[in-house]
């Protein structure tokens, strides 16, 4: 049997399992994306607050999170928290850990976008009688979004790929699925080529989405 037809035959065997892994990867990425976006936005607003009581905790948190490898943060979530009486499933530990880790990058990105808005815009909004929340919603964010969307698209792609780190805490996502099949069949080349192609397949739509967002919001 030729190499190619052997590959096709193995692929048929392995794909159902790997596709299940893809499904978990997508769930994990989406959950972490939502969490990191919400948290990142909170940190960004705290960092920009005039109150030191809000700024200081956010700066400290971001500095600590950025200085620790994601895999160590996941180990902490999954292996250390139970010792403190907090039991998380592997999936929960994975998305919370990834979400928190990425929230620091998101925060810096949001902050940059918000700070890029001309101060005259804020004064114009204030002079109309807008309260701070309204200034943020109607004037600052619609302009900041143009600055932070392109990097946000990249963050989504990085997150999809970094979700593979969750394999280290036994989350049954794509990389983990590949490892298990490879360990039992020794067909490393077939398995990891398939895994790579599947990641690529998932990230391509994200690349298009990122570019579309950039066009959509970059116009004005």
């Amino acid at each position: 049997m030729s190499v190619l037809s052997q590959f096709a035959a193995d692929a048929r065997d392995f794909l159902p399992i790997l596709l299940q892994g893809c499904f978990v990867t997508i769930q994990l990425t989406l959950a972490a994306l939502v969490l990191s976006t919400v948290l990142g936005f909170v940190w960004a607003l705290m960092r920009l607050s005039p109150s030191a009581f809000l700024r200081w905790p956010a700066v400290t948190f971001i500095t600590i999170i950025r200085g620790i490898p994601i895999i160590v943060q996941l180990f902490y979530m999954y292996f250390v928290l139970p010792d403190l009486g907090i039991q998380l499933t592997a999936f929960q530990a994975g998305f919370i850990g990834l979400g928190i880790a990425y929230s620091s990058y998101q925060a810096e990105n949001f902050r940059g976008g918000i700070q890029a808005v001309d101060h005259g815009q804020i004064e114009a909004a204030q002079s109309l009688g807008m309260r701070p929340a309204l200034v943020m919603r109607r004037v600052v964010l619609p302009q900041a979004i143009r600055v932070f969307l392109p990097p946000y698209g990249n963050t989504m792609i990085m997150m999809l790929k970094d979700s593979s780190i969750a394999s280290a805490i036994t989350v049954a996502e794509l990389t983990r699925g590949g490892q298990l099949i490879a360990a039992s069949t020794f067909k490393n080349m077939t398995v990891f080529t398939l895994v790579a192609l599947l990641y690529l397949t998932m990230s391509l739509p994200l690349s298009y989405l990122a570019r579309w967002l950039e066009r959509r919001f970059g116009r004005r």
Binding site: D118, G120, Q121, E123, A124, A125, S127, V139, P142, Q143, R220
Partner: peptide, 11 residues
């Protein structure tokens, strides 16, 4: 209030 640099909302 009318500003020197207009400060219209560009979006």
């Amino acid at each position: 209030m009318v500003f020197q640099r207009f400060n219209l909302f560009p979006h």
